[in-house]
């Protein structure tokens, strides 16, 4: 019994300690971002490894998600003779939900895990301590550019995902199943609002980008510096990012679209 209470207390304290460490880490990173602007080359390199290398998985997934939406939507809508509204269905579900969420999940798997592994390995091989020895702040030099790159890439990737998904829905709906081209686009434009749908989708993806960058960089920075510790940190990044994205998505959706 005493053992159980001890374990409970210990895990509570350590999770609070981790929350505190991650908050300090975030504040430190945010203050270091101004330094990145003076060294754009560091940011450029990270934009390449975080953004450009995620480009392919995001565009291909976006295309297939859009095509599946077109197919499924057509079968259901044609029961009601409403296949002209396929465009609204595909675009609304992509722009509001699937675009930000699925691209964030993919981004966490593709770029977030890589960031954690990279930072964790740097810590395990004592590169970060080496930098500190040379009076170079690793947060400024290593963490801040990666954080900013994730923050910038995420909305762009999510916009790409949604746009290519809409094209994928167009390929299947208009190209194969024979929905009218004009009504596909015009119903979409009539049904979606710039302020309510597009801007809110972009806000979601910015929030997700912030959360993923924070989680993955902190997990790497906080990893136990052994090969097992790094592997655990990488797993935690993907799991925690997925939970955070889905939880945040519910809260944001309730705030933006609901009357709660």
């Amino acid at each position: 019994m005493i053992q159980f209470l001890q374990n409970l207390g210990n895990s509570t304290l350590s999770s609070f300690a981790k929350l505190g460490r991650s908050s300090f880490f975030l504040i430190h990173t945010l203050t270091a971002i101004s330094g990145v602007i003076l060294r754009p080359r560091l940011l450029l390199k990270q934009l390449f490894s975080v953004g450009v290398l995620s480009f392919l998985i995001i565009t291909i997934s976006g295309l297939f998600v859009g095509m599946v939406l077109g197919l499924q939507g057509f079968y259901i809508l044609s029961d009601f003779g409403a296949e002209e509204t396929l465009g609204v269905m595909v675009a609304a579900s992509l722009v509001r939900e699937l675009g930000p969420v699925v691209s964030a999940l993919l981004f966490a798997g593709r770029a977030g895990s890589a960031l954690t592994a990279e930072i964790g390995l740097m810590k395990a091989t004592e590169q970060l301590s080496g930098m500190e020895m040379m009076a170079i702040d690793p947060i400024k030099r290593i963490i801040a550019p990666r954080f900013l790159a994730g923050f910038i890439s995420m909305p762009l990737l999510s916009a790409l995902f949604s746009s290519i998904g809409v094209m994928g829905g167009h390929i299947v709906g208009v190209g194969i199943l024979g929905v009218d081209d004009g009504s596909y686009w015009s119903q979409m434009q009539a049904g979606l609002d710039f302020q309510d749908d597009i801007i809110n989708g972009i806000i979601k993806s910015i929030v997700f980008g912030f959360a993923i960058s924070w989680i993955s960089l902190f997990e790497g920075y906080d990893a136990i510096p052994t090969s097992e510790g790094v592997s655990r940190a990488t797993t935690r990044t993907v799991v925690n990012s997925a939970f955070t994205i889905l939880g945040l998505d519910f809260i944001l959706t309730a705030l933006m679209f609901g009357d709660i």
């Binding site: 450029l44 390449f48 916009a159 790409l160 746009s163 979409m188 609002d193 597009i198």
Partner: peptide
């Protein structure tokens, strides 16, 4: 090449945002 690829990435992202604003939503008609 790095510069070019990053430039292409950012440009295509912005093009996608533009596409969403003009083609998917009703911004162009308002």
């Amino acid at each position: 090449t790095l510069d070019t690829l990053v430039g292409l990435f950012v440009a295509s992202g912005i093009a996608a945002l533009f596409f969403m604003a003009m083609q998917i939503s009703n911004l162009s008609s308002l």
